[in-house]
């Protein structure tokens, strides 16, 4: 069975662990660097990206996370997507810089503008319930990035190699198709590494 960690510095950790388990993977929370050992993949959950980044810096998580991502799949939702982006609109620096894309934070507005919408996600399915909470979106992607979903002309899910990201929160619904997609990515990568 594949073993997938959920970065547990802050945010919706329990929901991701549940969704991964429902998708047939073993799931554990990751609070310390040594807990990255023996994982086949990692989820970076939704939460507040500024708060997570401060804790990443405080515990010198940045380089170990980058090293992990060189060989293992990573899936980021909402704040996790922001942490994975190479460029953040209006900011001079980014975080893990895993996916060649430019993202804008809180791009759909404040909480009162948060919404649910049905999405089509390439390779995943139709009518996926997307829960967008103070969500970012992807403004632009590099040529190696595959756009997986567009909502109102805005890119809301993408994949580059073994990296997957979503601007919304699949972990807040009972629809586990996107998690199943990621678990499949992790299983395939594990075969290649072995």
């Amino acid at each position: 069975m594949t073993k997938i960690g959920v970065l547990a510095l802050q945010g919706a950790v329990r929901e991701h662990i549940n969704a991964l388990q429902e998708s047939g993977a073993e799931a554990v929370s990751v609070k310390r660097i040594d807990e990255l050992n023996n994982l086949d993949g990692l989820v970076i959950p939704g939460g507040e990206s500024t708060a997570m980044r401060r804790l990443i810096d405080k515990y010198e998580f940045l380089e170990p996370l980058k090293a992990f991502a060189k060989v293992k799949p990573v899936f980021g939702t909402c704040a996790g997507l922001i942490l994975m982006a190479k460029t953040i609109e209006g900011q001079d620096t980014a975080h893990l810089e895993l996916i060649d894309m430019t993202v804008e934070r809180n791009a759909f507005g404040r909480q009162k503008d948060s919404f649910e919408a049905e999405l089509h996600i390439k390779g995943v399915g139709e009518d996926v319930n997307g829960v967008f909470i103070r969500a970012p979106y992807i403004m632009d992607v590099g040529e190696d990035v595959e756009v997986l979903s567009i909502h109102n002309d805005r890119i809301v899910a993408a994949r580059q190699g073994h990296f997957l990201c979503a601007a919304f929160h699949p972990e807040l619904t009972d629809d586990y198709r996107l998690h199943q997609f990621f678990v499949q990515m992790v299983a395939e990568k594990k075969k290649v590494i072995a």
Binding site: L9, A12, V13, V131
Partner: peptide
């Protein structure tokens, strides 16, 4: 929606 309103608080967990 309930999901959007409660979900916002879920994102604050551990903080």
């Amino acid at each position: 929606t309930d999901r959007v309103k409660r979900g916002m608080a879920e994102m604050q967990k551990g903080g």
